[in-house]
């Protein structure tokens, strides 16, 4: 009885039209963002060469990726370094002196006066 009482037209309308409008709105956004990206995206050359002079005056080409970005591995290395820096997971000293003086009691065994080398004369 409950099923018969339901207005199926309304349900299908809300379901299909609602879902459809979500898609339409977001597809419209895709079009705008894509267009927007083409206008606003940073322009980069496909390849960029820089010359560095080494001891033999040789030219070394530093190639970048197709989009003009640095390679993924370099990105990962930079990200890891930043992560370590911001999370303070780095090897910087904490500036706390941890070396403690140790009191050495005198003993003939560690005496510098009676050392083996003291017998040499020049």
């Amino acid at each position: 009885m409950t099923l018969l009482a339901i207005n199926w037209n309304n349900i299908i309308l809300v379901t299909c039209v609602g879902f459809g409008i979500v898609f339409i709105v977001l597809v419209l956004l895709i079009a705008i963002i894509t267009l927007f990206g083409k206008v606003m995206a940073p322009k980069a050359k496909v390849t960029k060469t820089t010359t560095t002079t080494d001891a033999h005056n040789a030219t070394v080409k530093v190639e970048k990726t197709e989009e003009g970005h640095i390679p993924a591995l370099d990105s990962a290395a930079i990200a890891a370094a930043l992560h370590m820096y911001f999370d303070e997971v780095h090897d910087e000293e904490s500036l706390v002196v941890t070396i403690k003086t140790v009191e050495r009691r005198y003993s003939p065994w560690n005496s510098k006066i009676y050392g083996l080398n003291n017998n040499f004369t020049r």
Binding site: V22, F23, L26, V27, L29, I30, I33, T34, G37
Partner: peptide
Amino acid sequence: NPKSLLLGA
């Protein structure tokens, strides 16, 4: 990657 919006939809 604007195509992501389709997945979100």
